[in-house]
């Protein structure tokens, strides 16, 4: 059994190992050093949640604090990527995409196509997603469907420490622009992670649990919730197969379709808003390509179509949890 570390340590280790391996890898973002220019410690914070702590001591000027100017520094990361660096840029919360989106979707995403295949933009934008911290409407969203919508971007959503490290190393080595979404509720998750460097290819879903009655597709934090639900359902005699796509762009359609072919029933769990989200997207895909296998309507377990609320009472209602997943699975399992 391999060593166990936290999700956030897995991220740090991936950055550390890639910065050690390749001098063109740089890290930039708000407070990623976390103390530049102050009167106290230089790398006091090491990221707003300490994820990049320790890298400054090892790599000095290759990790840079930025002004709170997302357009400028996200754009700078993109520009530097076209000029031979491999920047990993931290957009602290995905909610902040509104103040830098142009650089991502009009610039980075389109260079290669607009320039006739001659541009290479190996930039990674790391960003936190997800509710559960009472952080309210502007610090809790799961906006990855917006990026998934844009041709030219790759979108990665790890659900465990093992996934986090391997997918981040792949993202850094990948020659296309990558949006790397880290669910903040997973940072403290512990799991087995090899200490060596490794990669996980994009577009390959993980079959988290094998089962025969109902397919559950889940992302990020929802994967753990789906596992809890599946354990409960197993005692009732309902066997769930859980698929974690790991990347929404590219999306491993085959693994989902093959599973639905076996189970005939599909529940999609997505913490993003229901309209034009991943649940809707995957449901549409299966309805088109796997209709003949379906023995029940596809169920989507998502938050309501509202902003993320502040009050704990409301936020707990907002986030899809194991109980709602179980209910949805029972529904499709019982459908005759």
């Amino acid at each position: 059994m391999a060593r166990k570390i936290l999700f956030q340590q897995a991220i740090n280790e991936a950055l550390d190992q890639e910065m050690a391996r390749d001098s063109s890898v740089i890290v930039m973002g708000e407070d990623v050093v976390g103390g530049t220019g102050g009167n106290g410690e230089m790398d006091a914070w090491g990221g707003v949640l300490g994820v990049t702590k320790g890298l400054y001591g090892k790599y000095g000027d290759r990790i840079m604090d930025t002004p709170i100017s997302e357009s400028a520094f996200v754009g700078a990361a993109i520009g530097a990527a076209t000029c031979g660096l491999r920047p990993v840029c931290e957009l602290m919360f995905i909610d902040f995409l509104g103040v830098c989106f142009d650089q991502i979707y009009n610039q980075a995403a389109k260079f290669r196509y607009m320039f006739g295949g001659k541009a290479k933009t190996p930039v990674v934008i790391r960003t936190m997603i997800g509710a559960g911290f009472r952080a309210a409407a502007q610090h809790s969203q799961c906006l990855y469907p917006i990026f998934t919508h844009i041709p030219g971007l790759k979108v990665v959503i790890p659900s465990s420490p093992y996934e986090a490290k391997g997918l981040l190393i792949q993202a850094i080595r990948d020659d296309d622009p990558v949006i790397f979404c880290e669910h903040k509720a997973l940072y403290a998750m512990e799991g087995e992670v090899p200490d060596e460097s490794y990669t996980i290819p994009f577009g390959e879903a993980n079959i988290v649990r094998e089962g025969s009655d109902v397919t559950i597709v889940a992302l990020a934090r929802m994967v753990g919730f789906a596992q809890k639900a599946a354990a409960t359902l197993a005692k009732e005699g309902i066997s769930c197969e859980i698929i974690d796509p790991r990347t929404t762009s590219p999306l491993d359609e085959d693994t989902i379709l093959e599973s639905v072919e076996n189970t005939g029933r599909l529940v999609i769990v997505d913490e993003a808003s229901p309209r034009c989200g991943m649940a809707a997207d995957i449901a549409a895909m299966v309805a088109q390509k796997g209709f003949a296998s379906l023995q029940a309507p596809i169920a989507m377990v998502t938050p309501p179509h509202t902003p993320v609320p502040f009050s704990g009472v409301l936020e707990d209602l907002y986030i899809p949890g194991p109980a709602r997943i179980e209910a949805a699975v029972r529904n499709v399992a019982e459908y005759a």
Binding site: D61, F73, A76, G79, C83, L85, P87, F111
Partner: peptide, 22 residues
Amino acid sequence: GANGIVGGGPPLVCGAALAAKI
């Protein structure tokens, strides 16, 4: 690149300059 977005270029130039500096 020419750029269809007014103000699209300056951030990219920061990156190009950063690459040269690093």
